[in-house]
Design a protein around this nucleic acid. Structure first.
Lengths: 209, 209
DNA sequence: AAGTCGCCCCTACTGCGAGTAACCTTACTG
DNA sequence: CAGTAAGGTTACTCGCAGTAGGGGCGACTT
């Protein structure tokens, strides 16, 4: 009899996620069947349901894990810098480097270009919210210390969301122009959101130290 | 026998789209069945397939139509203004007002908050591209006339995409805070992308004339 | 040593909904 | 008043998400 090894839950979940992530990333949610993931992980469909509840649950697990790691990387970067501009710059560098090193995770989180994006965008929205919060806090602190609390209250959160969205979409754009370096993407976001288009048009460019 | 009127294709397509749009907008792609749309439009499923080819085709038709109208509104606005800042500002106002008046179309195009977003994001990407191109052209013209062609070539397109993304996501954020006026959303995008966070933090706010 | 509990894993189904084949019927054409 | 195209239907197939129910093996009691 084939001595098929029995594997503890945690390890098997890991295998399933490892199989599912690149599949979801490359073909999109719809084009991946649960059976496929199951057999890829050496088991059958009901195991996937036992561990993740549903196909959506499986996808969410992939996306949530990706989101957690991305946000963790960003938080760690933020903890190492205090100056606002530097913090932004280093944060962007961290994010774009993370994207380059985790293309599958990024694609699952924020949608791959070829196949349709991901449904069930909750983890992506959640990741964006957490990243936006990091920026919002920075923003509010800086403005408060300059007696501009009112501006902060009103604009910080939505502007932070806009900032994150700009960065995320620059990431999407990047996926289609992969020859460029991460640093250039980060620089562009800084030009756009830190200096502002108005300044750039008048020749005021931003540059890291 | 019930004298159910037979309806010409163009008109029936219109009905189907009219039924499908709010359904997709409120419940998302997955939770809507083709049968539902068909009966809602007074016919049966095969008619939908005869006219739109597939469920995806039906969705794309909704989204593409929304995209066309949004872009058309923006193009018309752009044609009425030449000054870069004013053009941006009026364009943003146009977009946010359009969103307020076409919430369903907007939700189908760029994903509703409650239900999962939409798969098959091609029309959304296409709309973003076309809006970004409007901005890119403006951007390149302005920079070229100042002898900064090199900057333009390298940064205009990706920055324009970042700009559009920021505006789109501000629109998403707005859907969850619908009490605020369109003007405030537009103003925030200007603060973020025209002035830049750096300027805002130093107290330089932007305001329409 | 024998019960028994819980975990890992399977075969074999149900059911829903996308997509299709084949046919009917009304209305307009020469 | 055929002939034909366009609007419309019933009645299927099929793929896949999700489930029911059961089997075996280790670990922990007693």
């Amino acid at each position: 009899m084939t001595v098929v090894k029995r594997v503890p839950r945690a390890e098997r979940e890991e295998q399933m996620l490892a199989v599912a992530l690149p599949l979801f990333a490359e073909r999109g949610y719809h084009a991946v069947s649960v059976d496929e993931v199951a057999t890829g992980a050496g088991v059958t469909k009901p195991m996937v349901y036992a561990y993740f509840g549903s196909k959506e649950g499986l996808f969410q697990a992939c996306a949530t894990r990706a989101a957690d790691r991305l946000v963790a990387a960003l938080e760690q970067s933020a903890a190492h810098h205090t100056d606002p501009a530097e913090r932004m710059w280093e944060g962007l560098l961290t994010v774009f480097r993370w994207i380059a090193e985790h293309r599958h995770a990024w694609a699952v989180l924020y949608g791959s270009p070829g196949s349709g994006g991901s449904p069930f965008a909750a983890p992506a929205a959640n990741a964006s919210d957490r990243m936006a919060r990091l920026i919002t806090d920075q923003f509010v602190d800086t403005l408060r210390s300059q007696g501009m609390g009112a501006v902060a209250e009103q604009h910080a959160a939505p502007m932070a969301h806009g900032f994150v969205a700009a960065a995320v979409n620059m990431g999407r754009w990047w996926m289609e122009h992969p020859e460029e370096p991460a640093e250039l993407q980060a620089l562009r976001v800084m030009q756009l959101t830190w200096n502002g288009i108005g300044n750039v048009m008048e020749g005021r460019l931003w540059a890291p130290r």
